[in-house]
Amino acid sequence: MKQKRFLKTATPYFFVLPWIIGFLVFTIGPLIFSLIMSFFDWPLIGSPEFVGFGNYIEMFTKDEQFKKSLVISLKYAAIFVPLNMIIALFLAMLITQPVKGVRVFRTIYYIPTVISGVAVSILWGWILNGDYGVLNYLLSLIGIDGPKWLVDPAWAIVAVIIASAFGVGSMMLIFYTDIKNIPIDVYEAANLDGATPARQFFSITLPIITPTILFNLITSIISSFQQVTLVMLLTGGGPLKSTYFYGLMTYNNAFKHHKLGYASANAWVMFIIILILTALVFKSSSAWVFYETEAGGAKQKKGGKK
C-alpha cells in the first residue's frame, strides 16, 4: 500500500527525470563548478591554486582589456538591441500584410536564421571585404566610396552590427505570431473610426505586443552580450581590438591563454551584469508592458462608460 502511494507520487518525477539529470549535470553542475573555478588560479596542466578574490581584483584593477572589452560590448548592445528590434518589428509588419507571395518573403527573411553562425561569418567576411566586397561595389554604384569595413577600426563595429542584424529572423517570427494573434475586429473598429494605419500601429499593435517586446528585449540583451562566433570569425576581435567583445575576451582567456580560473571570473562578472540589466528591464516593465489578462477588468469598465 505504502509502496503504491510512493510510486504514485514519484511517477511524474520519473517522467521529468531525464530533463532534471540533464539540467543538473550539464547546467547547474558546470555553473557551480565555474563559480568555484573563478576563485582559483586554474592552469590547464598542473594543480589549481586557491587565490580567493584574486581573479576579480586583478580584473578590476590591473586588466586594461577588461574595461575596454566591457565598453565595446556595452556599445554593441546599445546599438544592436534597439536596431535589431526595430528591424524585426518592421519585417514582422511587412510579412503580416495581405500581399501575394508573402509566404515567399517570410521564408526569405527567416532563412538567415537557419544558416549556421560560421557560414554567416564567412559570408559577411566576403561581403564586407574592402577591396572586392559586394557591399562596397553596390555603394560604388551610387557614388559612395565605401570604407574598409573590417580594416578601419571606426567602421568595424558597424560592420559587425550589420552582419548580426542578418540573424533577425527568429525575433521577427515571434513578433509575427503575436501580431497575427491580434483580433481583426479591433482594427476594423479603428478603421470605422477613421484611424490611419500609423495610428493603428501605435495605438493598437504596439500596446498589445508589449509583452513580446519585453521578451525580445531581454533575450536580445542577453544574446548581444554573449556574442562570440561572429566576431571570432569575422574580425577576430580586430582591427586594432576594436571589436574585441567581452565574450571573445573570456573565450580567449580560457581556451587560448589557458587561464581557466580567470576566464570563469570574467564569465561570472558578465553573468552579474546581465542579471542586473535584466532585472532593470523587468522593474521598468510594469510601466510600459500591457498584459491583457491584468488590465482586462479596467478596460471593460472604460468601454462600458462609453
Binding site: K148, V151, D152, P153, A154, G238, K256, H257
Partner: peptide, 20 residues
C-alpha cells in the same frame, strides 16, 4: 607567449593597418 602574442599582434597591426 599566448598573451604576448596577442599584444604583439596588436602592435604589428598598429604599424601596418592603413588607418593607423
Amino acid at each position: 607567449w599566448s598573451e604576448l602574442s596577442s599584444d604583439l599582434s596588436l602592435s604589428f597591426e598598429r604599424v601596418y593597418n592603413p588607418s593607423a
